[in-house]
Design a protein around this nucleic acid. Structure first.
Lengths: 234, 234
DNA sequence: TCGCTAATTGATCATTTGATTACTTTTGTG
DNA sequence: CACAAAAGTAATCAAATGATCAATTAGCGA
């Protein structure tokens, strides 16, 4: 069939144009694995995890049974996609930068949210995230825990320190909810922009700035209220 | 087969217990239609719109081909579910209450968000909403337009009036984004609570209160900034 | 160049899918 | 009561699904 040439050659040709054309018609196990995960992520992002394995194979330019030499079943492929999508777009330096006390808390978090949204606010990441949450809460629970521990609690603690309030490692549920309000609000901006394709503001920096304004203008009051009710209990 | 009795009789028995037992073994066209939409909504909310028509029929207690006497194809059923889920949980009085100037803007919106979250923050509505957004942006675009026109722009306009600022019907993109920040933040709270099943604050009223605090503490500044840059242009 | 290893394919299976058809049974009404 | 309209079912189809396995062939090292 002409199928074979139609699918394999363009791909090989494309790669050839990119770097030192290998005439390899077969890839190493590792490379092929990455190809598959990449294609699967793209496809799942578009149609959800009910997307077919044949469509994924077609994107890669191989036959469908090949997927089963790399993953025992579809679910394993889905989990590899989870891992890939989440890990690729997480920067290990983020939570370090948030502790750099030579910068104001405000500017640290301003910078963080610029980086974070630049890395994650695109149709692929957002759609995979929401699809994953709907399909299997577990992976998203883990991710939200990450955000909570590494980012939001950091925000509350560092901000308390900057305000000269007693440095209590404990962050109350309500303090967390207020911090989540920024994160959730920004995420919903991403949803409207990259999933719903609505005509939202294009000025991401301004959106982040306003979101942080909202937080920083009420945060102190919340910390104080929490501290007071802690004192009441003690 | 025993199937028939297993599925139909318990349903009939249940109904009999509810009100003046009709020995009807068949329902009116309207009632059956509602049954199907209801079951479809439940099922789609659980597994997404790729859920099977046979599973829906099983929930209703009828055979699968019957669905095709009520809907020409699966997509029509999905659209009926959209309509049902969105319309059922929208209260036409909401945008009227928001204009009641005997109450402060703050308390009007506080009341609104209590009602709104009480009506919509449940796994079914939230999951269907997100599934719908991922599957077909159109329906969600329409809904977001509704929120924007009837709620968020109202918030900006009424708040401006209350502050004694010039009553301009026009709401800028940035003002809207700030208002969306509340709405999106709350929606993400719903996502974490009812979709991801995370252990969030149970005090919905407090969450709403904090979210509105955040808005009302920065809103005036934003209005002024917008008015100033409008003046610059003029 | 030969030959072995491993990447890849082709053919195929059992289920499940949305959808259609012809048939059966209930129910309200003249 | 009888009968027609309508609710509902059984049987079935074609296409698509995830998955398996034996056969093929590219590519690397001896």
């Amino acid at each position: 069939m002409a199928n074979f040439d139609d699918q394999i050659l363009p791909k090989a040709g494309c790669e050839g144009a990119k770097e030192a054309a290998p005439k390899r018609r077969r890839k190493s196990s590792e490379d092929r694995m990455l190809d598959i995960i990449e294609a699967a992520a793209d496809h799942f992002a578009e149609v959800g995890f009910s997307g077919g394995t044949r469509d994924i194979a077609k994107r890669v330019g191989v036959t469908q049974p090949l997927l089963y030499r790399y993953f025992p079943d579809k679910n394993s492929l889905i989990e590899a996609v989870y891992k890939s999508v989440y890990l690729e777009s997480w920067n290990a330096d983020w939570d370090i930068g948030l502790q750099d006390r030579t910068q104001s808390v405000r500017s640290r978090f301003d910078q963080f949210y610029r980086d974070y949204t630049a890395a994650n606010f695109n149709p692929r990441w957002l759609r995979i995230s929401y699809f994953a949450g709907l399909r299997d809460a577990q992976i998203n629970q883990w991710y939200n825990h990450l955000i909570e521990e590494l980012i939001l609690k950091q925000l509350v603690r560092e901000h308390r320190v900057e305000l000269g309030l007693p440095d209590d490692a404990y962050v109350t549920t309500e303090e967390l909810e207020v911090a989540w309000q920024i994160h959730g609000g920004l995420l919903h901006y991403g949803w409207r922009r990259h999933v719903l394709n609505l005509p939202v503001s294009n000025d991401m920096d301004q959106v982040i700035c306003d979101a942080l304004d909202m937080y920083f203008s009420v945060a102190e009051g919340v910390y104080m209220r929490m501290a007071r009710s802690n004192a009441d209990i003690a």
